[in-house]
Design a protein around this nucleic acid. Sequence first.
DNA 1: TTTCGAGTCCTACTCAGGTCGGAGGCGGGG
DNA 2: CCCCGCCTCCGACCTGAGTAGGACTCGAAA
Lengths: 216, 216
Amino acid sequence: MSIRVLIADDQSMVRAGFRMLLGGEEDIEVVAEASDGLEAVSKAARFHPTIVLMDIRMPELDGLEATRRILAADPSARILILTTFDLDEYVYEGLRAGASGFVLKDEPPEQLIAAVRTVAGGDALLSPTVTKRVIKQFTRAARPEAPKGVDELTARELEILRLIADGLSNGEIAGKLYISETTVKTHVTHILQKLDLRDRVQAVVLAYQTGLFEPD
Amino acid sequence: MSIRVLIADDQSMVRAGFRMLLGGEEDIEVVAEASDGLEAVSKAARFHPTIVLMDIRMPELDGLEATRRILAADPSARILILTTFDLDEYVYEGLRAGASGFVLKDEPPEQLIAAVRTVAGGDALLSPTVTKRVIKQFTRAARPEAPKGVDELTARELEILRLIADGLSNGEIAGKLYISETTVKTHVTHILQKLDLRDRVQAVVLAYQTGLFEPD
DNA sequence: TTTCGAGTCCTACTCAGGTCGGAGGCGGGG
DNA sequence: CCCCGCCTCCGACCTGAGTAGGACTCGAAA
């Protein structure tokens, strides 16, 4: 029995690429395509694909919300999220939304095909690149019985952590986000507390060492 | 005409390994071995190898000084330096000493053999890993007609920059190096001035972004 | 509706980080 | 020999970073 795939991406070229790529595989069949989130949800309901290849950035409804809705309707659905960028803020959210996997679009074809098979087979999967970046966050975030009081960072905090990792001062971050510097300080304090760090310097070190943000 | 190699390393196992490795190649001949720096210098003078594989850490005379002496006696000598560690403080010094190349011992055999051929052929070479780390330093350090006042960091400053990039505070660095915190501050100030940075946070960012120190 | 988390903002305080200027020792090159 | 760069150290000073504790809004969940 072949793997039935639904491709959801707003760029037709990307869809065509995947159709070509997957079409060559005997055990894989592309049963439908969607060019936006809403369409993805409806077609997932209609075709019941084994797996949905889901882009994040899509009109109408983004891939994350689409993922949530599809899973709400059918918890057994398997969704493999595609990203162009190395690690958007959406990754964590995507995993929380219930996606089974995460791959980068620019990875070699074999990897992508392998990813489809893996997820279709029931396993979760993360791009090797993504894996090591997420792993640490997840060993704590994913398990409700968290070791200690190691809370997950909020979206805002993550955003600020990223700016810190760019070497920006609190004032610069405030300017960039149109909030006051004191607010930035508040967030920074929370970040440091949650990650058990002493100062922003260590935050930068951690950001790079965990691969949260890529060096080059 | 084959490539004549002198292997200089204080560990006999390492020498044996290289002999095995290089012995399999038809165009490469291991003409001599040395177990310390002095021996390396004398054997280089006696055998005139096409290339010297030089370990850095050796008794009597380290690989850097040995490199300098060999080159002093014979400027046409080609020396390929071997390192175990990713990037010791010696790398820059080694390049300044006149070494033609730099490879990591744990790189795959083919790379090592290729490196030998490359350097023997007259080209300079850096391990891909090392390359990107050194490249930036060198585009400024190597050319006397430096673009602006972008001075090179001293060994001490580099050492301290590395500790900063580990997230250490000035006090911790002082303790680790057995110097006063004020001295550390002085160095830090110089580092920031030379690299045109605002604070240690940016220094960390730069360290990782230029690949000066590896994340993982 | 009430509760709660997230985000925003504030004051006031402490302290590490960084600057400035000056100073001594030490080794190598002119 | 003297000069200069490097490393070391000091005290005084200023500022950004981080903490503590509280307050307001808003939207989502109970």
